[in-house]
Nucleic acid binder design. Structure first.
Lengths: 213, 213, 213, 213
DNA sequence: TATGAATGAGTGTTCATTCAT
DNA sequence: AATGAATGAACACTCATTCAT
């Protein structure tokens, strides 16, 4: 309590939107869209409720901004993965698995995943954006890589798109587990370890005899 | 105001609660807890809004009833699966996979899964019930079966709990995909086929040389 | 404070809308649309704020209902006035003037007039409805009657529509005066007397014989 | 951040208040007090919202300034009209009618009238100021002139105050008509012509010689 | 002076819950 | 048991007002 006190206002036009989006992500992820209160988002962002409306016209707009921004960093991940070289498929899968494990430890993926799953019916445009710009692209890229490997004789016959899902599913389930059941006492998974074991299991089953040699 | 009036068929009150729960499941699954309106639930159940309160004290209670009831049929599935152990693990996994695929085609699993994932933070007791009474039991049963198979030399070394997750993950992801992205135009998966391919891939990688013979 | 107390609710579906409209008319007339609070309207109607929404979807809808209902009784007045023509114009004008004076003493015309004038720019549809269904019809009917009287040689040459306005203007101004300045201490007008004098003046002129000479 | 910057022309501060008042008049007249937004007033005045508070302490103060300023030019009109007496009353009335028609074509009288009528209940002091300093004075002056004319035998017996109202009412109604109904498609009145016809009618009467007989 | 980002009390609207019928 | 009109607390959003710059 210095005699001067802190200023009641801070003028920070540039930083505010992302501060608000971060706070909103946290609250939306925790509560879902409808149950999230703007009061709480504002409080967490350290601004007044009215200030939210300087940057986002409605609660829905704010939600859209949150979900759309959450795509950005991941897009990078995909592009690098897509660019991922001609080498043997086993290397590629190990590489991607490692990347995924990292991302998942570092970013609030869980919250975003829950938001998208939970609000897809209420915000179909968002589900569409996520599918078209992120999920489908990632899945297609994986599928292409696997199909190419099949053509090279590295991977056994089978639906390559299904193989791609088999590949990422445990990571996704691990994240959901962490978000859903760990907070109520469930034993957590060591996601990187889970993914390592999964890759090796999958490779053993996925690869042809020659590819193993 | 004729004394007779139309001959109103009143359903027996015994059926009302489950009719309401069914309607509520549909709405909660579609909208999430907070965005679900009692008006809509009542309308779908064919009763007045006030009537809901004859059977459920609050919206939360109704939600609890919905989530808890959704456990019941699945519990049966698990118990039979648990009881199925003696033979080789490959048979067990194929059996369970088939059962899962059936259930998933027949029951509104997707909606329930979304509800549990989406509202876990808002209703921790529900997440706990689901974990303790259903998910953890299923996972433990699977883990035990795999561990036993390892002891018998059928399954390669590795974390059996992780193996269990690897096993079910694609089915779960397939269901989520169906709920989330198919409505906005995504290409659906043939879940039984996905699960069949997954089992075979996994078994090839999971089993020891001897078990393959 | 009888031990039983009054019932908290009253079920009066049929009466409510008009009770609410009456209360709303009072408040809108006094404050204007924007400054009128639904809380106050509800309180004056003896219902809760929420109850308003059982009958009117929005504040604007309620306002529309108020303004539109205010047309109904006046429409009757016009129709009879229109039907009244055959005799000499002087009789017709005296008749209508008497009717107007009555209406203006009995109904909350002033509030309605203020509402329509004050909110015409904010609610053009309402201004249009009022014009098309009430004001223009009345003015046209008067104009026709005067034109017919001119054809019969009863009325001097001149724009009959202007004559019609000259005829009703003092009544309107008198009402506005009553609403606007009397509450702050202005000397009121005796509207019937004003109208009687006006009619006679209009019919015979202001000036004395000598003044004309 | 060059030291020079653009050569900004700053208007002298002395002009600001009246610029703001003009803008405010436009917005208040169009929307009414409550529906008028300071944002819009500031924008029309070409200043920031904050700048309004350098000149007016509150929105109400600004409104007061607007309504009070609107009195000034009219006061002049009255004084000259009052000074105009000696000749025959017919000349006086024709003179004043011409002045009124001019004023009404040139100044935003309509908006002011609407403001005063619409907000009289919300701002009684303003209604009082308008009454005491403008309307009552004008009416009294007219009344006195008419009474004097009666004493001179120029005007028939009757309530001179009522005669005064009869005199100005069509002009007022014409202005209100222009503000209220013309924007939604009503046929406008030619106000000077209306007033000319009105004066002559009032002076000589509506009826023909024969009709009187 | 002047700005405009920031505030927060206030209002329209929603909806879970109650209760007279 | 069943209804649905009515309630009122809660929330999204607005806007007059403030203040750091």
């Amino acid at each position: 309590m210095l005699p001067s006190g802190q200023p009641k206002f801070r003028r920070r036009k540039a930083e505010r939107p992302s501060e608000i989006i971060d706070a909103a992500l946290a609250v939306f992820a925790e509560k879902g869209f409808a149950a999230a209160k703007l009061d709480e988002i504002a409080a967490r962002a350290g601004v007044s409720k009215g200030a939210l409306y300087l940057y986002f016209a409605t609660k829905q707009d704010l939600f859209r901004a949150v979900v759309e921004q959450a795509i950005a960093p991941n897009l990078h991940l995909i592009r690098t993965a897509i660019a991922a070289h001609p080498g043997p498929i086993s290397d590629l899968l190990r590489l991607i698995a490692g990347r995924l494990a990292e991302v998942v430890e570092r970013l609030p993926v869980g919250g975003v995943v829950k938001m998208v799953i939970g609000e897809a019916r209420n915000f179909p445009e968002l589900a569409r954006v996520w599918h078209d710009e992120l999920v489908a692209q990632a899945l297609d890229a994986m599928t292409d890589a696997i199909r190419a490997a099949q053509a090279r004789g590295e991977v056994r016959p089978g639906d390559p798109r299904a193989y791609a899902v088999q590949f990422v599913a445990p990571m996704l389930v691990g994240v959901i587990w962490r978000e859903t059941f760990v907070p109520v006492g469930a034993r957590p998974f060591d996601l990187p370890a889970l993914m390592r074991q999964h890759i090796e299991t999958l490779l053993t089953g996925l690869l042809t005899e020659e590819a193993h040699a």
